[in-house]
């Protein structure tokens, strides 16, 4: 007479399998969901002003550096002051030539009366800063320098993606340490000939970098030039970023 019914014989096997499955699930779940790629990439918060890079950068063709003025001078690519916005939105109209492509607003001052810009106008009037939500954020113990990267010939595109196509900005890349090091170890994939002066022309950059064999031809030439006598090679030691 059996105290336990026969089906109980399968319990150990079932338990083992469940445990194994559980472990795999936890590990792979953690692997995927606890990575910067999951948590960081794709972050797209709502901003206080519904500003569209797609409209301004792509359609109107405004250069990145018109607003992010210090990107070549400072480690921080500054968010423009409200005044920078108001340069166009108060006094300049399409026909005065600041805009490459005149759009639907031709002939009028730039959305001077638009309701969508109510928020901008109120910030401009009050003098309070617009509380932009920060999207690309590295931990405090990581030091990143925009100027150094542009100087080396790394385009905005390499880290931020086609930000000129984003109506609402989101984080495209994980910005994890591995992701940084991948490029620092083989920069040829991301180097652009900066003498052409088109580092901020993201469409052109994308086209260049996506050419077949770019990394082995032009890219590697640039990388070689950069790292000549190892003086300008992208650093991979700890104190390059952590201090």
């Amino acid at each position: 007479m059996a105290i336990f019914p026969k089906w109980t014989n399968s319990i150990p096997a079932f338990a083992f399998l469940s445990a194994a499955f559980g472990v795999v699930a936890v590990v792979s779940g953690f692997w995927v969901y606890a990575t910067p790629k999951f948590w960081e990439a794709g972050y797209q918060p709502e901003q206080p002003i519904s500003y569209s890079h797609q409209l301004h950068a792509q359609q109107l063709g405004i250069d990145c550096r018109y607003c992010h003025t210090n990107v070549e001078k400072s480690r921080i690519a500054n968010v423009p002051s409200t005044n920078t916005c108001m340069n166009c939105h108060t006094i300049v109209d399409a026909q005065r030539g600041y805009l490459k492509k005149a759009t639907a607003v031709e002939g009028e001052s730039v959305h001077f009366k638009s309701a969508a810009l109510q928020a901008l106008r109120s910030y401009a009037a009050s003098g309070d800063p617009a509380p932009w939500k920060r999207i690309h954020k590295l931990p405090d113990y990581v030091q990143f320098n925009h100027a150094a990267h542009l100087q080396a010939g790394v385009s905005c595109f390499s880290c931020h993606g086609r930000i000129d196509q984003m109506a609402i900005v989101y984080q495209q890349n994980p910005l994890s340490m591995k992701w940084c090091l991948d490029c620092h170890r083989s920069p040829a994939h991301n180097l652009i000939d900066k003498t052409q002066g088109r580092v901020t022309d993201l469409a052109w950059v994308q086209e260049q970098l996506n050419q077949d064999g770019y990394a082995t031809s032009s890219g590697s030439l640039l990388a070689e030039k950069l790292s000549d006598s190892s003086r300008g090679a992208p650093p991979t030691h700890c104190s390059a970023c952590h201090y």
């Binding site: 500054n78 968010v79 423009p80 002051s81 409200t82 005044n83 910030y123 401009a124 003098g127 309070d128 800063p129 617009a130 509380p131 932009w132 939500k133 920060r134 954020k137």
Partner: peptide, 8 residues
């Protein structure tokens, strides 16, 4: 995190 740029 907020980025508070200058107004002017």
């Amino acid at each position: 995190h907020r980025i508070l740029a200058y107004s002017k």
